[in-house]
Nucleic acid binder design. Structure first.
Lengths: 92, 92
DNA sequence: CCATCAATTAGATGGCTATCGAAGTATCTA
DNA sequence: TAGATACTTCGATAGCCATCTAATTGATGG
């Protein structure tokens, strides 16, 4: 899997925010999927608007994908994208 | 080698800037050390002030170390720090 | 329908930072 | 010692972005 420079950079930016990094890590630890509601209720002091903004950034970067089921949204980590990112970093 | 959360975050931020990432990659490709002057003269449109600013960020993050010899400064990539960073990332 | 809940979007704001020009410091050389 | 060169520091500015509140969309249940 090959990442464009633009995508690589958007991933770097996405992971450079501590809150977003925490979200990504949580989703990764969750095994398969993690509910947006779960993040919202267990994360310290984040408004729904801010959470939505961050998750959109992560999705635009391609690091996560979202699924809506009725009112609820769940996220899944794109491990293939993460691996491609790390592989590119390792070339340094 | 263990990175503190603060250091990990500063590395993330340092690598999230495309110009800094380019500098790090150049230094890495250079094998051992790379002269500041070389970067300054071969990099497209960067003032000495801006270059100095970025290299300071990279050095503060611990990604590079600098050595001064007379007028000249050379940089060396801290591969141990980079590896520790990648190892932490891979835990996601 | 109406109320409630989940999530998104819109709009505003404050803080951070990449960037530059100008001035400063240190070194080398003629 | 005077001028040139390499880099740093200072001060200012412009643009980006994390964050919030408020309003909106969409779904569920009474």
């Amino acid at each position: 899997m090959k990442l464009t420079d633009e995508r690589f950079h958007s991933i770097s930016k996405a992971l450079a925010d501590p809150r977003r990094f925490d979200f990504v890590r949580r989703i990764g630890k969750a095994g398969d999927t993690l509910a947006c509601e779960h993040i919202r209720t267990t994360c310290c002091d984040v408004t729904p608007a801010t959470l939505s903004h961050h998750m959109k950034e992560l999705e635009t970067a391609g690091l996560v994908e979202s699924t809506r089921e009725g009112k609820f949204v769940t996220y899944r980590l794109r491990r293939d994208v993460l691996q491609a990112y790390l592989a590119e970093m390792a070339k340094i």
